[in-house]
Amino acid sequence: MLTYENNVASWVEDKVATEFACTIKINGEEYTTIVCTPDHLEELIAGFLLSEKILSRIEDIKNLWIDERDGLAHVTAENVNELFKRFLTKRYITSCCGKGRTGFYFLNDARTAKVMKPYRLSISIEDCFRMMEQLHQSATVFQETGGVHNAALCDQNGIVVTRADIGRHNALDKIYGYCLQNQISLHDKVLIFSGRISSEILIKCAKIGCEIVVSKSAPTELALDLADQLGITTVGFVRGKSLNIYTHTDRIHGKHGGSS
């Protein structure tokens, strides 16, 4: 590429993020296409199918193989939820606990998002800083390309698994797929995220069952409305030694006051 810096132009080699379109076929029938980063694809497909409740159990996947040349994920599965295709893109807006015209954009999201049970997990403010720093140190693909989102699943001891993808939700599906394949519970874990907390990300966290999400960036208003409804603690703008706790603050202990 041609780069320009300090009034000097030069030709240099650079690494860029890869986009890959992967079409999922279940029992020979095409379901949907995911645009993603082409690594950990089996985890991505498993995580997507289970988080979207197309399948209910990881055991329902009898065979899964990726044809990277043709961009296909072939899945042989039992107990496929046929309602998924009907609701995949059906818009569905509902009020959030009487707070106005906000809520789920798609009916499938409303059907599959979980309300978290209250406060099974608590972490400290220092844990938030430490986990975010660990995510930053592990983000090698981002450091090379600047073109992916990074996510990590952490427990009190640090990172359990970290994944990167051009799609925010894909990174979470890869983590969920890894946990499903390795029988790792998410209920006592924290999701650490490099990108903003959008409504899409918040709903994905609810679907896979994480009650705390911590981000380097900002949340959106709709994401916070949904977090309030679904019982999810949201922490944003984790930078240096500062952060903001937006919803269900009692899960974060340290030198702060108040609750929501």
Results as ranks from 00 to 15, higher is better:
residue 30 E to T: 15
residue 30 E to H: 10
residue 31 Y to M: 13
residue 33 T to E: 04
residue 34 I to T: 10
residue 34 I to M: 12
residue 35 V to N: 14
residue 35 V to W: 05
residue 36 C to Y: 06
residue 36 C to I: 09
residue 36 C to H: 06
residue 36 C to N: 10
residue 37 T to W: 08
residue 38 P to C: 06
residue 38 P to M: 06
residue 38 P to V: 11
residue 39 D to V: 08
residue 39 D to F: 04
residue 40 H to V: 01
residue 40 H to D: 05
residue 41 L to Q: 09
residue 42 E to V: 07
residue 42 E to D: 04
residue 42 E to L: 03
residue 43 E to V: 02
residue 43 E to L: 03
residue 44 L to M: 07
residue 48 F to A: 02
residue 49 L to M: 10
residue 50 L to F: 06
residue 50 L to S: 04
residue 50 L to I: 11
residue 52 E to S: 13
residue 53 K to P: 02
residue 53 K to M: 04
residue 54 I to W: 02
residue 56 S to F: 04
residue 57 R to F: 05
residue 58 I to V: 14
residue 59 E to Y: 05
residue 59 E to D: 12
residue 60 D to T: 09
residue 61 I to R: 00
residue 61 I to H: 01
residue 61 I to Y: 00
residue 63 N to R: 15
residue 63 N to Q: 13
residue 63 N to H: 14
residue 64 L to A: 02
residue 64 L to T: 03
residue 65 W to K: 12
residue 66 I to N: 00
residue 67 D to H: 00
residue 68 E to S: 08
residue 71 G to Y: 00
residue 72 L to Q: 12
residue 72 L to N: 11
residue 73 A to Y: 05
residue 73 A to R: 11
residue 74 H to D: 05
residue 74 H to L: 08
residue 75 V to A: 02
residue 76 T to Q: 00
residue 77 A to G: 03
residue 78 E to K: 15
residue 80 V to S: 01
residue 83 L to I: 04
residue 83 L to H: 13
residue 85 K to C: 02
residue 85 K to T: 08
residue 86 R to T: 14
residue 86 R to K: 15
residue 86 R to H: 12
residue 86 R to Y: 13
residue 88 L to V: 08
residue 91 R to D: 06
residue 91 R to G: 05
residue 91 R to Y: 10
residue 91 R to E: 13
residue 93 I to W: 08
residue 95 S to I: 10
residue 95 S to F: 10
residue 96 C to Q: 11
residue 96 C to N: 12
residue 96 C to M: 14
residue 98 G to M: 10
residue 98 G to V: 12
residue 100 G to D: 06
residue 103 G to Y: 13
residue 104 F to W: 14
residue 106 F to V: 07
residue 106 F to L: 15
residue 106 F to A: 07
residue 107 L to K: 15
residue 108 N to V: 11
residue 109 D to C: 03
residue 112 T to Y: 04
residue 112 T to W: 01
residue 113 A to W: 01
residue 114 K to R: 15
